[in-house]
Design a protein around this nucleic acid. Structure first.
Lengths: 240, 240
DNA sequence: GAGTGGTCTAGACCACCCC
DNA sequence: GGGTGGTCTAGACCACTCC
């Protein structure tokens, strides 16, 4: 089950193996895992390698350790939020809906002072400004306006925005996206949102502002989204 | 600087040391850290111990590794959200405001089916129901209703709720809080909220529902909060 | 006392990056 | 080629838990 000659690291093989056993119910919530020394003996690997695998599972919330006692499978949560930073597309798919887009505009404009500030570029530096209505099962779900610095992310096209922007940044440009900070506010629909989202005047709206960063901390994207409150709830998990 | 005879783990001492150097500007964003081997030689410790310290800093976003090149200090983010799960009190302090409370009611009631479902207990099992107006600089900020299973968290008093519930659970009851799932929605103020939060009818409200879990995954708290949208924005950081 | 996780060592070989 | 991080070993001693 563990291939020591594989180019896939041993700790990762073991991690996936245990994760599968949990997902498939071979290891149930509350069950104690074999001890680290037992795994080490079973697969003839070092205990440090076993620990590397289990530490990852602990960080991801699959299992927890009790000093002097053992390692146990965690209970499942009532509602399972998405893990980590996801795109609208991934988010909607996870909610069992079909994502769609309607492009409102796509242009290169000089950065306003506030956009320049968020993207840490000079005022009037060129930025892509892309506004889209995001659809779920063909019903408007959110109005999204994205800003991307042209120097950092050149060659963005409508087609790329239709498929996966993050994949383009990571695969085609070779830049790794690390994280995003999101600011979430409650508001009511303005005239523009009333029209594009097809909601009544003053309907509740969930405003989400996203600042996305590369691995070295460079801002790569600034997005303002207005979600219909009647169709969207934001769900996250936070560790203590 | 590193004390090998201290009961404080070496990796933790090194982690704090590097963190301090970053906070105090001795290591600036973009700077390369000394290599792992260099740290190991300098402090006469094993490279694996150095890696344990740096891995933690990577996970917390302070530094990032580049294969074959080195480890570097991350850029600071534009707006720094709180790290991890925090209480209202901690949150307000971090925002530079003075937190306060006004108790609306404190009672033990039989769990409704929805509360029982969230807390994974039987319907009609006794639960604490605590409703408070949360103040920031003496102005109403949120209306918060908490439910706690009496069997799991016995001995809760008004005084404990005034100080720190999480500390009581962790210190007095010896249970570790692991994480919380939060569901965030946009809404408008109902009559009760209009009165207690002193806002106009139909003002935008940020609804936050929090499900808190212990280390083994047992639900320990269920909280519904209504925040004034004019005074509160929710900020989080998500890793890819 | 036996078993568990927590910490730590002193090496090793690899792939990758830069010169 | 020399330096870097990524992976891995085969031990060790500790504190803690449970019986």
């Amino acid at each position: 089950m563990i291939n020591k000659n594989s180019p896939i690291p041993i700790y990762y093989q073991l991690e996936e193996k245990i994760k599968n056993q949990i997902d498939q119910g071979d290891l149930k919530p509350g069950d104690m895992l074999p001890s680290e020394r037992e795994y080490a003996n079973t697969y003839a690997i070092s205990r440090m390698t076993v620990r590397q695998a289990i530490t990852k599972l602990v960080n991801d919330g699959y299992v927890y350790r009790k000093k002097g006692t053992g390692t146990f499978v965690s209970e499942k949560k009532i509602e399972q939020p998405l893990q980590g930073l996801t795109s609208f597309t991934e988010d909607m798919k996870a909610r069992g809906m079909t994502p769609g887009n309607r492009l409102v505009h796509f242009k290169v404009v000089p950065a306003t002072s506030s956009v320049a500030n968020y993207l840490k570029i000079q005022e009037n530096d060129p930025v892509y400004e892309i506004q889209r209505v995001r659809l779920a099962d063909n019903v408007p779900m959110a109005l999204e306006t994205s800003y991307l610095p042209e120097k950092l992310v050149p060659g963005v096209t409508k087609e790329i925005m239709q498929s996966s922007l993050y994949e383009y940044i990571e695969a085609a440009l070779g830049k790794k996206i690390k994280e995003a900070t999101q600011i979430i506010e409650s508001s009511t629909a303005n005239q523009n949102e009333v029209e594009l989202l097809q909601v009544r005047k003053s309907s509740p709206i969930l405003l989400i502002e996203r600042h996305t960063y590369l691995e070295d901390g460079t801002p790569v994207e600034f997005v303002k989204s207005a979600y219909r409150a009647d169709r969207y709830r934001f769900m996250i998990n936070m560790k203590r």
